[in-house]
Design a protein around this nucleic acid. Structure first.
Length: 341
DNA sequence: CTGGGGCA
DNA sequence: TGCCCCAGG
């Protein structure tokens, strides 16, 4: 599950409006996966149309992106490419957790424990090829560009921030920082309130931004050293990291010893970890060949056909959202005309 | 996750 | 208004 840099990093709350006019590179799998986990019915089931086709991902993508576009934020979606062989172990671990969750979900359903069903249902999400295709179709209809990453999507998103194509990378995971993203935006969403997993309580979750330069300044580490800290804590490429070493210890060890090879405490275990290869994944990532992205117009026709005709979304709702977006865009171009005539 | 309806 | 809660597909 990504890597836990949170204790080492200070983030700054940011208003959505502060991202107006800026391009934000969004990890598509990360985002769609969250929609599949969160957007569910009262018994923890995915949203589906009459033909049993899953629509949770489309619902999330539609509402989220209309809100971003209405704020004049320019999203670029980055889709994962070929998985690195070192990630196989982490994928296997997740798949086992999913299998367990499916069993617990069915069990909870049988016993009528709906709160548990919802809880376990969230953990069973599987992202299919057709969901990816449908997501791309919807993005195209919204005029939103997407990039196919050769390898890790986070790496490609980070690259877009390095080349200046994007202002920031948006993801819930901290991997972007290790991949060298200039800025990472977390909680990029419209609504400020989120329901806490178990209870009936709500917490305020606002968008926050993490600057790569600040992370280095505050920790006093180089990018290379930060990657070593990540390897000690554990990344997707060495899940779990080194036993007994958490964020605090990891940063202390690297500050004192400069680099992984010099840390006496882990020397005996180092031979079993392909740390040089993992460093290269983060420091010399495979990136997309072409950098250009171009934004298109919102196609009301295509969206209504895809979501309402094909996927049984409510025409009133979808059209209403599109009206709202159009008004936001019109009022912006009118206020520009005031200045530039 | 999000919009919208019901309600203080 | 603002908050809570539920349906959406």
């Amino acid at each position: 599950m990504g890597l836990d840099l949170k204790p080492l990093i200070t983030s700054t709350p940011i208003k959505l409006a502060e991202l107006s006019g800026k391009v934000v590179a969004i990890d598509a799998f990360n985002t769609i996966y969250q929609f599949l986990s969160t957007i569910r019915g009262p018994t923890g089931e995915l949203l589906m149309n009459g033909r049993g086709e899953v629509t949770s991902h489309l619902s999330g993508l539609f509402y989220r992106n209309v809100n971003l576009l209405a704020e004049n934020i320019k999203p670029v979606y980055v889709f994962d490419g070929k998985m690195h062989a070192l990630k196989a172990q982490e994928i296997e671990r997740r798949s086992k957790l999913k299998q367990e969750a499916v069993a617990q979900y069915n069990h909870a359903l049988e016993e009528g424990r709906m709160e548990d069903a919802v809880k376990y249902g969230k953990r069973t999400s599987v992202l299919t090829d057709s969901m990816v295709e449908e997501s791309k179709m919807l993005l195209a209809a919204l005029g939103i560009p997407y990039v196919q990453a050769p390898a890790d999507g986070e790496a490609a998103a980070a690259h877009l921030t390095k080349t200046g194509v994007a202002y920031a990378s948006a993801s819930q995971d901290y991997d972007s920082i290790l991949f060298g993203a200039r800025r990472l935006v977390r909680n990029l969403a419209a609504s400020g309130r989120r329901k806490v997993p178990g209870k009936n309580t709500y917490i305020d979750v606002e968008p926050e931004i993490i600057e790569h330069d600040n992370v280095l300044k505050e920790t006093g580490l180089t990018h290379e050293q930060l990657v070593d800290v990540g390897i000690l804590i554990g990344t997707d490429f060495n899940p779990g990291g080194f036993p007994g070493i958490g964020p605090k210890t990891a940063i202390k060890l690297i500050k004192e010893n400069g680099r992984l090879e010099n840390v006496e405490k882990v020397k005996s275990q180092l031979a079993e970890v392909p740390y040089q290869e993992i460093r290269d994944i983060f420091l010399k990532p495979e990136v997309p060949k072409s950098d250009g992205v171009s934004f298109g117009e919102v196609s009301r026709e295509k969206i209504l056909d895809f979501l309402c005709v094909q996927k049984s979304f409510s025409t009133d709702r979808v059209a209403g959202m599109l009206d709202k977006l159009q008004k936001a865009q019109e009022s912006r171009s009118q206020s520009l005309e005031k200045w530039f005539g």
